[in-house]
Write a protein that binds this DNA or RNA. Structure first.
Lengths: 179, 179
DNA sequence: GACTTTTATGTCGATAACGACATAAAATGG
DNA sequence: CCATTTTATGTCGTTATCGACATAAAAGTC
């Protein structure tokens, strides 16, 4: 059996929270909200949507204004499946496919200049990511009311920020020690 | 084009550091040292080893004691390719395929009991992982000399510990707030 | 020394992933 | 209003992944 299927459940979650969403908008979610936790391209999403309609997890209607746009809605069956999935315990930690650590691991000489280069690049990437995350936090949660209304979303965004900031601080510490 | 190929480079790194390693031992590395940063099963590794021998990245010899065991060595070509790969900049952060965050994200009600259940499970997993990592740190780096000899390895292990501890602290904080 | 279990390697089938390519409707622009 | 560009959806080919199955040598057992 191949890897466990996750994508259809994520799509269920997206459609459940935003009825009448289009395929294009679902794809866009993976570049913004969901993007920090999962990636998917439109060439995965469109065939998946088709399968999910076939399986009666979703229904679809065509836009009256735009003949090629399709709106998706979750069915009762789909909602059941989503609820069951959300309630199922997560039984393993995510595997970090971390090229940075991997390359560091293979460079045995502590004075190899490539170490400092790797750290510099990684620091830049993390800094960029942190800026982006903080920007989003300001945009999505401008006040306490917004936090209360989407508390879970707030939690995971705060967690991502905390994690990224932690890694940055740690990298800085290492970089300073190498000087 | 499908996803970028990483596995052969990891294998190059492993064989480079441990000449005369067997396929079984390479597989074992993914359950211990490398396991925190990459996963691969033997059914990926053996065909890959074959390809790499065909491509002259590795050479292989058969054990005199055990007819079915094969020893692998990196070739000059393989070493060049490995060095080039190690020097190449990592241009993107790892995507965290994080089911925990994903499920949280889809549960909008802050009082949904599944939130606390998710947090409890995640805490247990992280705690288990942290214990394991600290155990490894004690085993692999019993003294400063060991740290100096494999400084990079020490770095990434320390980083994993720091990250895991950070996430745990953060989860505990959230859990306390929900009470 | 025949039998069973374990070890090390190898193979296969189903499907996930993803970039490249394709298409037709809608929007744009002169 | 015709030509061009953009948008939204869809398709395809190649490769990655991984559990299940297979096999033959080695080790263990009585």
């Amino acid at each position: 059996m191949p890897k466990r299927r996750i994508l259809p459940f994520i799509i269920l979650g997206i459609v459940s929270n935003r009825p009448q969403i289009t395929g294009r908008e679902i794809t866009a979610e993976f570049s913004t909200e969901i993007g920090d936790f999962w990636k998917a391209s439109h060439s995965q999403i469109y065939p998946e949507l088709r399968r999910m309609v076939d399986d009666q997890w979703l229904t679809t209607t065509t836009s009256p204004q735009n003949a090629k746009e399709k709106y998706y809605l979750i069915t009762a069956t789909g909602q059941e499946i989503l609820d069951e999935w959300l309630g199922r315990a997560v039984d393993e930690l995510p595997i970090h496919q971390d090229l940075f650590s991997l390359k560091l691991f293979f460079i045995k000489d502590p004075f190899d200049p490539r170490i400092r280069q790797l750290i510099a690049t990684q620091t830049a990437l993390l800094q960029q990511s942190l800026t982006h995350l903080r920007q989003r936090q300001r945009t999505v949660f401008p006040d306490d009311q917004a936090i209360t209304r989407h508390y879970s979303h707030y939690l995971i965004l705060a967690r991502a920020i905390s994690r990224t900031a932690g890694q940055l601080a740690w990298l800085k510490n290492v970089g300073d020690n190498l000087k």
